[in-house]
């Protein structure tokens, strides 16, 4: 009995230490990445290629997601507020929800799924096939050549994607409001502009930058620490996407509560 209790306590202790050690290692990885990202040389070709991959190729999936979210938001809100001044209320709810929460969160989740998985798989494959070791022996620092361009590109691209996603999401709400709910276009547009506050847009962009940082860092961290061949690559990819998604949803609450609540 005593032995069983000790075993259970031992397992809990081991898990806690491993968890804390992972957090510590991730923190050190982030500091190291930022350090190498702000130090020359900057690999412009790599940064450019990452910007195209993260920014340009994520546009369709981000656009599609935010467009339909705006549409469904307008539809659901109009049902709830049908007895009130619908044009103004629906426009305001769509605008505020998209700019403050849905735009950044949906964009973050889409980027985590599409780009985070790719980053983690790419780096993990390089790790298990000794390509990262080879980089180090060829006069190139892996953190500077591989990780820093992904971090820089994510910090630039995710806020831009959120701005574009927000615009498309609001457009989705407008389409439904005008063509399905038969709202007055001028009134709807006026209500949208009237309720557009810069602090809401800034809030969304701050979140976007933080999500970009988290996605790139978590994906690169899991990839960089991959082991055990193909299985390790799979584990790194899954961990990157799941952890990034959970962190996006957790951090959006924390950011709102701390700075904009």
């Amino acid at each position: 009995m005593k032995k069983t209790i000790l075993n259970i306590l031992g397992s809990i202790g081991y898990t806690c230490i491993r968890f804390l050690s992972q957090i510590g290692n991730f923190f050190i990885f982030c500091i190291s990445s930022v350090f190498w990202a702000i130090r020359p040389p900057w690999y412009l070709k790599q940064i450019h290629s990452q910007i195209i991959d993260i920014g340009y190729f994520s546009l369709p999936v981000v656009g599609l997601t935010t467009f339909f979210s705006g549409m469904v938001l307008a539809l659901q809100t109009s049902i709830g507020f049908s007895e009130f001044n619908s044009e103004s209320t629906v426009a305001r709810v769509v605008l505020t929800s998209i700019t403050k929460e849905l735009g950044p969160v949906l964009t973050g989740l889409m980027v985590a799924g599409r780009v985070g998985a790719k980053m983690a798989a790419e780096i993990a494959t390089m790790k298990v096939t000794e390509q990262i070791d080879a980089l180090g022996t060829l006069g190139t620092r892996p953190m500077q050549y591989l990780i820093a361009p992904k971090l820089i590109a994510s910090l630039i691209c995710v806020p831009f994607l959120v701005l574009i996603g927000n615009t498309i999401g609001i457009l989705g709400g407008y389409v439904i409001a005008i063509y399905k709910l038969d709202f007055n276009p001028d009134l709807y547009l006026y209500a949208t502009i009237e309720h557009l506050y810069w602090i809401d847009v800034v809030q969304g962009l701050v979140k976007a930058a933080i999500f970009g940082f988290l996605i790139s860092m978590l994906s690169c961290y899991f990839g960089y620490n991959a082991s055990r061949g193909a299985e390790g690559v799979g584990y790194a990819t899954t961990s990157a996407v799941v952890t990034s998604s959970v962190m996006i949803l957790t951090s959006t609450y924390i950011i709102t509560a701390l700075f904009f609540g």
Binding site: E130, D133, A134, T137, L138, G139
Partner: peptide, 14 residues
């Protein structure tokens, strides 16, 4: 490391 030329077990080409 600039003085060294190294090949890895599985090639490790990029």
């Amino acid at each position: 490391l600039l003085e060294l030329g190294i090949t890895f077990q599985h090639g490790a080409l990029f």
